[in-house]
Design a protein around this nucleic acid. Structure first.
Lengths: 251, 251
DNA sequence: AAGTGGTCTAGACCACGGT
DNA sequence: CCGTGGTCTAGACCACTTG
């Protein structure tokens, strides 16, 4: 009777702290998993077994198991049972903030210099990035962001006019393009790619960089309601910018 | 009676799809929020109001509101009420996988060549990264990971012997150091920094790179139970490696 | 047919915050 | 005091999987 001993172990792991029952059940199960007593794919006692053996109502057991499932500890299949989930892949958070907020957060002063702010006709590649037809009018902006007097980001952005018709008329000394676009279009999803590249000569000069110095490049596409709002290429001097993130197990 | 009209709107937003009631309630509330009908800080009808007006049991309403709270849409305060939450900050996910899995996922063959696998005495910098005393014996490994025949990652790793005493005895043709460490120590948290750097001459040769080509560098520190297990410097050729991620609103 | 999880109900008691 | 959310119970019906 593996199940019975599993329950006995679980009951022993349930302390009697002054906490809600469903939380104590969750904590007891988590400790079985993290201490390796219940390995991945191990079957977890069924709801009715737990109800009988722990003397708790089924709704309470169900809540504990349901929350653990949504937290990635368990896997459930209707008609089959509940099982310990595979160790989660380590997917880590990297926070990609608005550049102005980031600089302000360090107590420094942000400013921006606009290099280009124009309407252009989309070439085939640009059209593809925005999901519009080749030759259609789109907006293009190129600006340098400064932390105090030092350039830290070169922002090269394409914008879909259908989603932000007044993009060219904004005052970008008061507000970054990112912030403006957040306001006019409820951004619902995005994708980004991070890579290391060498800047072109023009880019290197705009960022006031030495020769043979690499850049971090973040390319980001942002959707609003299944339409692409904007495609940005954010170029950072490798010597002045790092992406920092943290992660936790089963986060 | 703002509340009454709020409920009327909500009832109208509740379609009669063949879905569980708690899900339809959730969806109706979410649509009120995303369409701006209920702005941030707006009060949401209380559980008992929703019970009376929607003709649903309180446990069902409670589940809907509780899940929306944990998903970041709502804010609840006992004794006060339920309110629409602030728009969440845009924190994006970047997935950092095990290199072997990643290569296998592309249908290619992973292999590794060990350059160094030794016990060393920690210099002050290394000791700091592992949280041990200077001069203490630690493990050091340096290996190149190949995708088919092409080098894609240079892994330079320090390991705390207290957390993985058999690290030097493993066969790393069968298992990456990462996978091994995951097994022997329940990794609970980590931090990483992503940056763009130029490789040293030695590193460039090990990765078979051209001159003046940049690298993506991920430095990662991993904890198990508040002790540092390992510190890794993962160096990728900029031309052959990109970090890809996606994000969603209210994720 | 038996066991599983998925959902729902109509009650109940409690802790908290504002009046 | 009253209304709020937080939790818990003892039932119930259903859909699904497996033998």
């Amino acid at each position: 009777m593996t199940e019975v001993s599993a329950i006995a172990q679980l009951a022993a792991a349930m302390g009697d702290q002054p906490a809600p029952i469903y939380q104590r059940v969750k904590q007891a199960i988590v400790s079985q998993i993290t201490e390796g007593v219940w390995p991945p794919h191990q079957r977890v006692p069924s709801e009715s077994e737990l109800v009988n053996e722990l003397g708790v109502s089924r709704m309470t057991i169900n809540r504990a198991l349901r929350e653990l499932t949504s937290e990635g500890y368990l896997m459930r299949m209707q008609g089959v049972g509940t099982f310990v989930a595979e160790q989660k892949a380590w997917t880590a958070m990297l926070e990609v903030h608005n550049i102005a907020d980031e600089i302000a957060g360090r107590g420094n002063t942000h400013s921006a210099r606009i290099v280009t702010l124009h309407e252009i006709n989309a070439d085939p590649e640009q059209a593809a990035m925005l999901g519009v037809a080749t030759g259609q009018k789109i907006y293009h902006s190129l600006m340098v962001h400064f932390e105090n007097a030092l350039p830290v980001q070169l922002e090269d952005r394409l914008v879909n006019p259908a989603m932000a018709p007044d993009y060219l008329k904004q005052n970008y000394d008061l507000q970054t393009p990112y912030t403006y676009l957040m306001q006019v279009a409820p951004l619902t999803a995005g994708e980004h790619v991070v890579e290391a590249v060498m800047p072109g000569v023009q880019q290197r000069k705009l960022l006031a960089m030495e020769e043979h110095e690499p850049c971090l490049l973040i390319r980001r596409q942002t959707w609003s309601d299944s339409k692409i709002v904007t495609y940005a290429r954010l170029l950072y001097p490798g010597s002045r910018y790092k992406l920092i993130g943290s992660f936790k197990g089963h986060g």
